[in-house]
Design a protein around this nucleic acid. Structure first.
Ligand SMILES: [Zn+2]
Ligand SMILES: [Zn+2]
Ligand SMILES: [Zn+2]
Ligand SMILES: [Zn+2]
Lengths: 137, 137
DNA sequence: TGTCGGATGTTATAAGGTAACGTTTCTTGT
DNA sequence: ACAAGAAACGTTACCTTATAACATCCGACA
């Protein structure tokens, strides 16, 4: 029991291992990086990672970053069942990812969709640039 | 010379072929689908497609859809050197993609970035859902 | 004419993701 | 406690997406 944050949902052994790996990292991890990290814990093949990731993403504990083909543990302040749009700010310098929840953005996307008669199911917003810390440094 | 839209920039043979393939499609195409389409025109290997795509994306004639690992010809109304944020509405039913340029969205994303001291270089916004046509049908 | 950069052709391989199948383990009703 | 079904698991094999590396070709131009 290294760092089993997020009680309330009970995860299986593999899901917990994958979640812990992501929680312990300070940036996004690819599925194959997770696989390598967990080989010493018994993982042997991609499906073990992908199945855990699928579930974790499904219940909202993990997010997939489409533009990176990678995954991050959810660090959203009040992350329980966030239905709002989440934006990710990905630093191209240090690689860290900030998770941003913004009502105005959600509204704006909703309006854009509505205006063109589009039934919005899911939004992907990923910002690339340089984070504050790296700019200061 | 099937449908060589977009004069002004002069494309190489391969770039024109790839662009034509994308222009002729009514939805996004993967690099490997493009490769297959162009085999009869002499294409033999992935790098030929990816090199053309890289250039086309670079000059703005083609967009990459991160959440689909696929590419579309730019259909932005006034698409010359659009620096604004472009949002894509991807229909999960018919597969078509609408390209949406929206100032309010650009502003909003700029504000979100600014608020957290993030130097924004590029935004990816991809909306998934059902398009108007499919909803009506 | 020589040379130099950009575009090209080609092979091989890295990286990301899933189908399919059999086994184990957990639930749940009886 | 037991049977039956569901969920998770382990494993193999395979598919898709993307790039590294290297050799060649070709046009611009000094
Ligand atoms: Zn979150
Ligand atoms: Zn940074
Ligand atoms: Zn465009
Ligand atoms: Zn549709």
């Amino acid at each position: 029991m290294a760092e089993d944050a997020q009680m309330g949902t009970d995860l299986t052994k593999n899901q917990q291992l994958v979640f812990d790996a992501l929680s312990g990292a300070d940036g996004p991890l690819s599925a194959y990086t997770i696989l390598d990290l967990l080989r010493e814990r018994g993982f042997r093949a991609p499906p073990q990672v992908y199945r855990a990731l699928d579930k974790l993403v499904d219940i909202g504990l993990v997010h997939r970053l489409e533009s990176l083909n990678a995954f991050v543990a959810c660090r959203h302040p009040g992350c329980d069942t966030h239905e709002e749009t989440i934006a990710f700010a990905i630093c191209e310098d240090c690689g860290k990812v900030a998770e941003i929840s913004d009502d105005a953005l959600s509204d704006e996307l909703g309006q854009i969709a509505g205006r063109s008669g589009f039934l919005l199911k899911k939004s992907t917003v990923e910002l690339r640039g340089i984070c504050g810390a790296c700019r200061a440094a």
